[in-house]
């Protein structure tokens, strides 16, 4: 959702494009087919490259601007690829009252990037998320599929080191 143009060159393969076009052809004209198409695009490419969204726009006969408008509305969609390791710190209420903002700050310091961005080498991207539903473990951070709960800011460094 961040307001920035895609900064990396498009690296979609013909196979990926074909997969997307197949999906689009199946869903064209279906009521409410836009969201599933966007989700499919993100699933295939990892983000929403402009080139891929043009395929969706042409295939579904929906203005590109409308697709972008819809996609940029939702937090789930990204216009830039994510890092190899996606780090997310939960800023849901339960985590927040238990100090997850400090955890997030510690991660920012450790990775040297702001929330919503990616390290220069493309290894880590950092996001703040809303409640992943693991409130019992608050405060929670996820790295890829790994969940780390009951965190304190000083544990962050050691955890991230494992992925460095």
């Amino acid at each position: 959702m961040p307001n920035c143009k895609t900064v990396v060159p498009y690296r979609g393969t013909p196979e990926q494009e074909e997969e997307l076009l197949r999906f689009v052809a199946e869903h064209k004209g279906q009521p409410g087919g836009v969201m599933p198409a966007l989700q499919k695009t993100q699933q295939i490419f990892g983000y929403l490259p402009e080139e891929a969204l043009i395929l969706v726009a042409e295939g579904m006969d929906v203005p590109l601007s409308e697709l972008y408008s819809v996609a940029s509305f939702y937090a789930q969609f990204s216009f830039n690829p994510k890092g190899e390791h996606q780090v997310s710190v939960c800023l849901g209420t339960a985590c927040y009252v238990k100090g997850s903002a400090d955890v997030l700050e510690a991660v920012e310091k450790k990775l040297g990037i702001r929330t919503g961005s990616i390290t220069r080498d493309g290894r880590f991207s950092l996001d703040a998320t809303r409640c992943i539903g693991a409130c019992g473990l608050a405060p929670v951070m996820t790295v890829g599929g790994d969940v780390y709960g009951r965190l304190t800011p000083d544990q962050v460094g050691a955890i991230l080191d494992k992925y460095m």
Partner: peptide, 10 residues
Amino acid sequence: EGDPGAFMDR
């Protein structure tokens, strides 16, 4: 379920 801190529906 959007309330950041509710997970009964989930």
